[in-house]
Design a protein around this nucleic acid. Structure first.
Length: 445
RNA sequence: UCCUCAGUAGCUCAAUGGUAGAGCAAGCGGCUGUUAACCGCUAGGUUAUUGGUUCAAAUCCAUUCUGGGGAGCCA
């Protein structure tokens, strides 16, 4: 009885007769010679059926197989430099083929398709090479982020998804019913992690967050995964060091472990290899100067108008895009005006109109992938900010209380998983980085 | 919420006021090195909806719906 092998390990079985359990990805034939592209979830290998090598009924059945039929194939592994599978260089001489199910007409043919059609068939589209590669990179990114945090003493904490209306107060929340009472889907776990650090010192949460913004762009989903570490006794400089370390580590892990995937995605690896320490840091004020320079050297009137900005306003995505074009690495922008940042951010020493906030902007036009800040540690100042923003004081009672029992400087950030994966993979739209993306107007499948 | 583009065969598209068509997919046949193979044949249509203009509408006008891209906001 031959051994069942996963395609990713096929190199260890050259010359052996093995079994592969999988699906027919594609097929092309030339009479008595048939080529089957077989995938098993871990890779793709080309199986060759030569009529004289198989029982007639097996060959004929194989020749008639439809795309995505499930099959169990027996064959001999051959090395062949020209073979284009994943991994490259191996081929299977088929000696037997058992059909588990003949698939019905498969809608996603190896041709061009529109995005609406592909999204309607997302449950099938994830089988396609590029989508398969992106979602594998996503899994490696998730694992690498957790690995870095684990190695640096962070504990993963679960923060609630059902939350009272406590949030940053800025973005729109999804409202639902909790036994007759209104309740909201979490847009962040940060406030709970600020409580958690007083018990554990270093924590993070990693899960879905929800924003009811009517944003219809390639950077937005209504449900997206966010990594949110929070660290006691960490100032803004410490925060930036942590972010550049975890981001560069994650990119390095992808380069090491996802070579086949990044090749499928035709990712320019030289761009990723440049993601090394340290990342450039510019202040909000310096960013405004750079934007003014850019604007002065631009002919396009429409873009020129889009890039207009006054001190005190947050950057729009056109500003971010232009700024990131100046660098080969992700760039930190720190010290945003307090008026455009959240209530809980610590003011700059001697400059209260500026907050100890940072964004990390990814290169190649991918824009903001991380937002973070040092948090206010003084209970009086926090209360003042809550009142200033007209937030419900009672709801923040517990949050203010954290600053009364051993308050310490602390900081944290949120990293958008989809945007980070999109950048690493070089895919344009975040929806392809999520197995079942929820976007404005789409919740199927 | 605003701006903008689109909707024709299962899919991708063509037909610009005058008989709705091609490629791929599907079915049948052929082929020993294919990689989106190739060749021949077969079948496939309420042109998103509703109304209007016209001798005549996929085409022009209006409406509604659905989707794409973007702004604002954000990860």
């Amino acid at each position: 009885m031959s051994q069942t092998v996963r395609i990713q390990n096929i190199a260890q079985h050259v010359g052996q007769t093995i079994i592969i359990k999988g699906w027919l990805y594609a097929k092309t034939g030339k009479g008595r010679l048939q080529f089957l592209q077989i995938r098993d979830g871990s890779g793709i290998v080309q199986g060759v059926m030569f009529k004289p090598n198989l029982p007639k009924e097996v060959f004929d059945a194989g020749k008639r197989l439809s795309q995505e039929s499930s099959i169990i194939v027996t064959g001999t592994v051959k090395e062949d430099k020209r073979a284009k599978g994943i991994p490259k260089g191996y081929e299977l001489d088929i000696t037997d083929l058992k059909i588990v199910q003949v698939a019905e007409d498969y809608p996603i043919t190896p041709k061009e398709h529109g995005i609406e059609f592909l999204m309607d068939n997302r449950h099938l589209w994830i089988r396609s090479r590029k989508q398969w590669a992106i979602l594998r990179v996503r899994a490696v990114v998730m694992q690498s982020l957790r690995q870095w945090l684990h190695e640096h003493g962070y504990l993963e904490m679960s923060t609630p998804i059902f939350t009272p209306s406590v949030g940053e107060g800025t973005t729109t929340l999804f409202k639902t019913d909790y036994f007759g009472e209104p309740i909201y889907l979490a847009q962040t776990g940060q406030l709970y992690n600020e409580a958690n650090i007083f018990s554990f010192g270093k924590v993070y949460c990693f899960g879905p967050t929800f924003r009811a913004e009517k944003s219809k762009t390639r950077r937005h989903m209504t449900e997206f995964w966010m990594l949110e570490p929070e660290t006691a006794y960490q100032d803004l400089d410490g925060l930036m060091e942590m972010i550049e370390q975890i981001v560069s580590y994650t990119v390095a892990q992808c380069l090491e472990r996802c070579q086949d995937e990044l090749e499928i995605l035709e990712r320019d690896l030289t761009k990723l290899k440049q993601i090394t320490l340290p990342f450039p840091r510019i202040s909000y004020d310096e960013a405004l100067e750079k934007l003014a320079d850019i604007r002065n050297n631009i002919q396009d009137h429409e873009l020129k108008k889009l890039l207009e900005i006054e001190w005190g306003s947050d950057f729009g995505s056109p500003h971010e895009t232009e700024l990131t074009k100046l660098y080969d690495k992700p760039v930190f922008v720190y010290g945003y005006p307090s008026q455009c940042t959240a209530f809980y951010m610590e003011p700059w020493d001697d400059r209260p109109e500026v907050s100890k906030s940072i964004d990390l902007l990814a290169p190649e036009g991918y824009g903001e992938i991380v937002g973070g800040s040092e948090r206010i540690s003084d209970p009086e100042l926090l209360l003042e900010r809550i009142r200033h923003d007209n937030l419900p004081e009672e709801a923040f009672k517990w949050y203010i209380e954290l600053r009364k029992f051993g308050s310490v400087p602390h900081s944290g950030f949120g990293l958008g998983l989809g945007r980070t994966v999109a950048w690493i993979c070089g895919v344009r739209h975040v929806r392809e980085t999520n197995p079942y993306p929820r976007t404005l107007g789409r919740v199927y499948p």
